[in-house]
């Protein structure tokens, strides 16, 4: 076992980590926006919108995300839309994470009793104000654990973007392996890096949990 040859590739590894983080954060933020919008559509009265969101969810949750990335990277260009590797992966992972987020956010919104909404309406608030100030905060708290574990899956899933050479951590590892032939050392090293990243996010999520959701839980 010899980790020495890996040190030369420090810069590439750091860049790989940064691209992994960028992919994760972009997909998480865009996916969460999709999640809230999709969940609102699912609970709304407009049937075509509900059917559209439902099909989207089924499509993206029941197919391999690797193929989703491939389709966007290899197939869209034949329709005249050519995206670089990182952008392709970002779009695919956003849609993938969005599909799961819709269901998570919907479960959260469903967990808020109708009486809370009525109480807001009776105070003369608009539909948006009721949603933003009365429904959304406790809803997000209720599904926060589900959201964070989905986030971890997303972070680990960014390794699939290596297959279109998006330059993230796993892609860098393959590159180093092809130069050094140190398979075990390289993959052991990035395994530790992925693990450390997840642990760091878990710590961050705990801090967010403690600051954003300060009200006592219902007994």
């Amino acid at each position: 076992m010899n980790f020495q040859p890996l040190w030369r590739y420090q810069d590439q590894l750091i860049e790989g980590v940064l691209i992994t983080l960028a992919l994760t954060l972009v997909a998480a933020i865009v996916g969460l926006v999709i999640g809230v919008a999709g969940a609102v559509a699912l609970r709304g009265n407009f049937r075509p919108a509900r059917m559209l969101v439902r099909s989207y969810i089924e499509l993206f949750r029941n197919t391999p995300s690797l193929i989703q990335i491939f389709l966007i990277f290899f197939v869209l260009p034949s329709f005249g839309l050519k995206l670089p590797a990182f952008e392709s992966a970002a779009v695919a992972l956003s849609l993938y994470f969005g599909a799961y987020s819709v269901e998570i956010v919907r479960a959260g919104l469903d967990s808020i009793p109708k009486s809370q909404i009525e109480a807001g309406q009776c105070l003369g608030l608009t539909g948006w104000q009721v949603f933003r100030h009365i429904v959304l905060p406790p809803a997000m708290r209720n599904v926060y654990p589900a959201f964070t574990s989905q986030f971890v899956l997303l972070l680990l899933g960014t390794s699939l973007a290596s297959q279109v050479a998006a330059g993230e951590l796993f892609h860098v590892a393959s590159f180093i392996e092809s130069r050094t032939y140190r398979s075990f050392e390289v993959y052991a090293a990035i395994c530790v890096i992925y693990f450390a990243l997840v642990m760091a996010f878990k710590a961050l999520f705990a801090v967010i949990d403690a600051t954003a959701f300060r009200w006592p839980r219902r007994q």
Binding site: S115, Q116, E118, A119, G120, Q121, C122, L123, G124, L125, T126, H133, I134, P137, P138, R141, F213, W215, R218
Partner: peptide, 22 residues
Amino acid sequence: LRQFRQRVGIVFQAFNLFPHLN
């Protein structure tokens, strides 16, 4: 409707306070 409701207070059996607000 909203302006009207602002002038009519209603109190419910189950209080319906917002748990996430002090």
